[in-house]
Structure formats: structure tokens, C-alpha cells
Amino acid sequence: MSVEIPYITEPRPDTGLTLAKLGVWLFLASEVMLFGAFFSSYVVLRAGNTWQDFAFGPAPVVQDAESDEGDEWAEEEAASDETEDADEHAGHDHSAHDASAHAADNAGSGHDDHADLHSPLQTAIPMATFNTIVLITSSVTVVLAYASLLLNNLGRFRFYFGLTIALAFVFLGVKYVEYTSKFAHGYFPATSPLLALYFTMTFLHVLHVIGGIVVLAYLVGPGTKMWKTNPAQFTGRIEAVGLYWHFVDLVWIFLFPVLYLL
């Protein structure tokens, strides 16, 4: 089709931006808010629990002590339509019982086997550190690939892009080992709020890595054809995907200390 949209390769004079660059930055802004919601949830859940409960899960509650009351609320929930406050009551009602429930149970159940561990993620710190370095390195290789294109060196661009993809696969491999070892130790998303956040956030991050690999692979494979026909647009694409990849790295830079070290 012959519709020619302007400012794909040349920046618009008054804003100084190409379409792709502005588009990617806006997309990243919304991604920041996406991960921001998870970080905010981390803060709320961590502040709302003791460290022990947060990391290893609250101890099971003794049921008979409060079943009557619970029943009452449950009925009200079923009868109501949107139940904003019913939830409310459910939440507060039971938090009032937290203390007694814990006193009754804190000594028992699986908590003892973790006595030597500060966090269920403690054993994964070496792997996560290694992964941090892998991801930072891949970020450098992407920006070096972009610089190679600016220097008209397609061969070196291919080399650095290939290296980036390889590093991304290394990251995924380590993540796979990490997940399986967590499962082997009986740590699942349902185990504790920390583990729920850990699995959800890192998996979302892994999805971003996989998405990145797909785009990188396309651009270093069939997509490279554009270098011959329209080098400016191709360079623009590389810059845009580079921005995305740096963002994936940036998220990990925050995920790593927040989940593993704090």
C-alpha cells in the first residue's frame, strides 16, 4: 500500500523524535507502571506480615476457635452483590485473631527446617548474581551492536546480536535450574507471599526475556534484509529493541536485590 507515514526514519523537526523511538519509550513507561504495581504489592505485603510469615508463609490457623464468626461473614458475602465491605470485614475480622493463632501454632509445623535460613531464596543468591552479570553483559552487547551499525559494520553487529541472544538463553537456563531446585525443596508460589511474588515477578520478567529473544532473533535473521533497502529504518529498529532490552535489564537490577537480598 502506498500510504506513506512520515517520520519513520527522519525525526520530526519540532519534537526531534522518530515514531518508533517515542512509541518504545511510551511503551516502557507503561511497563514501569506494570512492574511498579508488583513492587508496591511487595511493600504492602511485606509490611503487613512479620518477616517469618512473609518469607515462609503464616502458620496454619486453628480452625474451631473462630469458625462460628467466619460462617456468619461467609454467608453475608454470598448474599451480597459487590461486597466491598464484606471483604473488608473478612480481612479485619481475622487479622484480629492473628496473634492468638500464631501463639497456638508458631512452634509447630514446617518452620523448624528453615531455622538456619533467613529466606527461602537465600540459596539462590549465587545463581541470581551470576544471572545479573549475564543480563548486564547482554545489555552491553546490545548497545555495542547498535554502535557497530552506526559504524557501518554489519558483521560485528551480527556477532554482538548473536552474543546477546546466547546470553539471554544462558539467563533462561539458569532460571530453569533455579525454579526446579525451588520446586524440589517444596517451595511453590502458594508457599508464602514472598515466594508468590518471586515466582510471579520473575516469571513475568522471563516472559519479557523470551519476547526479547524473539524480536532479536527476527532482526538478526530475516529482518536484516532491511539493512540493504533502508539502513536508517533498520538502525532505528535496533535502537528501539535495544531500549526494550535495556529496560528488561533495568527491571532485573531492581528485582535482584528486592527479591533475593532484602
Binding site: 503464616p58 469458625s67 461467609a74 481475622h94
Partner: peptide
């Protein structure tokens, strides 16, 4: 929440 009781 911790200790949620549903239908008893």
C-alpha cells in the same frame, strides 16, 4: 488474608 474462613 491469614486465617480466612469460608462457610465455616
Amino acid at each position: 488474608p491469614t486465617g480466612l474462613v469460608v462457610s465455616g
